[in-house]
Design a protein around this nucleic acid. Structure first.
Lengths: 338, 338
DNA sequence: TTGTTTTGTTTAAACGATTAAACTAGTTAT
DNA sequence: ATAACTAGTTTAATCGTTTAAACAAAACAA
């Protein structure tokens, strides 16, 4: 790579000190600098194609204008859509985004956070992984500005932006019950991550309210690592109960996507023989022959708010902001009307 | 944010110079440093939770161990999958990825590249946008290491890794013809981006070879900005010709995804009344009732190779590497067998 | 003993910017 | 005429590392 022009190069060419060049290019000391020199400096900067060396600037100012983003898997629609929103919002504020995928793995998450901190990001947006409360505590101790997104730790005082997942599942189940479904299965992850836990709680509570307390056999928890295979098994089991379920709630777009692929190979018809709702959606649930009824995640608000809160938090503000966004039920063709 | 411990802090606590601390922590001058002092330094580093300030290091070494990634839109499955692969490959080599979306917009692309260069990335991986040859020339002039991915400029001597898009379309059309289709439509983008141009050329040539030269009315080019709406119109038109097409090739996953959403609302049945092939695929084409026959993009090879080539190029190597990967036809249920 | 190595460590410059403080020369006020 | 400003610019320290070169003391060789 060719050596880039520095302030020094410009200074030499114009015959002034680097300080003056810096003042001119940053529009500091307005009015105190002679117009001709300022003009000459600006012209020379353009001529030599000068670009600020942000590394050097960061070292001095202790600001990198970079935020670190830790998502579960950037290849997943949920993460990548969020990443895009955060990217745009950051860009508006002249921030750049460094990202990494945690793969729902605590060790990776820790390593990733450290890499990002080594690079002196000004703050972090994190979708925290199971069993990483200690990592978050570390951040707090070091007073690193950060915002949790999508999930959070209910007993910790941190910034976060998430959907109200309890309400989301509750709304989904209510919709199914109102549609006449009696036996409603749940396919979810076996995990203690808060958003997933809340979704289960919403499901169970909603059923109770309608006096249809959830049967143990209706709830299927699959492992994150082997989800595709286990979703198939879960569906098989739910459909082969002595009293098969007439509806299934999937607690994430990953699960429903696997489910749809499998359902296409089965004779069962949606919604006639089986109703489906998914929490969080993607193109994959829209191209199914019966585009899914789903709980819309307010991704735009989530990403924008998280970024805003982070930037505020970076710029000084030490108050804590916790946001629970409202879920929205979007009725598709996978659930029958009453 | 709390002040981080620096070499100086460690040096003071141990009572040595910062140089020595640096040598120890970087395992330089092995053997020349007394074991006890080295041990003490290491212990103190851990005790004070020392993390290298990569910004300072970068300033001195002129290396950031960061690569910039410019994709069309990180929210799109193609880009995000590629991003994930590049992330993993970079990570293996202790590189971190700074990313941004160009939105197929030349101005955004230029701005993005500049932002990344300002941040002193060691090199770039770019999916170049239409009309950005000049930006690429700039990079060459400044001897910035970079690799183009997915698309390239055929008349420029640059590193690139792409699929052979001509072959891809050719294979797709051949498959359709061998399946008995006579009238094969193409829905593609109105653009001069090389990969898309090549796909069209592959389509036209394949038809010619089978003596079924493409009719003008069979080719529908939609604008990138208004693709969803125009895909619908294109499908309507292709199906309402006096002699309607019996198959359609979609030149990207974005186009086929829009198409599938629309097709679900039409009475036409795939593959009985209409065969479909798409170049590049995603979950969305797998959850369709007739999971699409598609041309598999070798994303893993593409991402890994691009990263490797870039890292080589960064580390000195000034030879140019151009890779055209083989497409692979994956037969789904959207095309009839003969 | 004196000179030469070796070992262990420090000194100091450098990377490219920022910025408070100092300086110089004009200008204005008294 | 002298003091006090003002305008325009430079000096120099600093951010946290890295690293060539210098140095001091101990070990070895003659």
């Amino acid at each position: 790579m060719k050596k880039k022009t520095s302030l020094k190069d410009i200074a030499q060419k114009v015959g002034v000190s680097t300080a003056l060049v810096s003042y001119v290019l940053n529009n500091k000391k307005e009015g105190r600098i002679s117009k001709q020199i300022a003009e000459k400096i600006r012209a020379t900067a353009i001529e030599l194609n000068y670009k600020t060396n942000q590394i050097a600037r960061s070292l001095k100012t202790n600001k990198t204008y970079t935020i670190g983003l830790v998502v579960a898997d950037i290849a997943n629609a949920f993460s990548s859509t969020l990443a895009r929103i955060i990217e745009d919002e950051a860009e508006k504020n002249n921030y750049t985004v460094l990202f990494g995928s945690s793969d729902e793995n605590a060790q990776k998450s820790e390593k990733l956070i450290n890499v990002l901190l080594d690079r002196q990001v000004d703050g972090l947006i994190i979708a925290p992984v199971e069993d990483t409360a200690s990592q978050i505590v570390q951040l707090q101790e070091n007073e690193v500005p950060f915002v949790l997104i999508d999930r959070y730790f209910p007993d910790m005082k941190t910034n976060y932006v998430a959907m109200d997942n309890y309400k989301a599942a509750h709304a989904a189940v209510s919709h199914l019950i109102n549609g006449g479904n009696k036996r409603i299965g749940l396919v979810t992850f076996k995990t203690t991550i808060f958003n997933i836990v809340e979704r289960k709680r919403g499901y169970v509570t909603a059923l109770k309210e309608y006096k249809t307390s959830a049967k143990r056999s209706w709830i299927r928890e699959v492992s994150i690592q082997n989800a595709q295979e286990e979703v198939r098994e879960a569906i098989d089991q739910l459909l082969s109960l002595s009293e098969p379920v007439d509806a299934i709630l999937f607690s994430s777009n990953l699960l429903s996507t696997y489910a749809l692929k499998y359902l296409n190979t089965l004779p069962v018809k949606v919604p006639d023989q089986l109703n489906i709702v998914t929490i969080d959606q993607s193109d994959a649930s829209d191209t199914f022959y019966a585009p899914l009824t789903y709980i819309r995640q307010p991704l735009l608000e989530m990403g924008q708010l998280a970024t805003k809160i982070l930037l505020e938090s970076i710029s000084k503000n030490n108050k804590i902001t916790q946001v629970n966004l409202e879920p929205e039920l979007v009725v598709g063709k996978s659930t029958s009307k009453v």
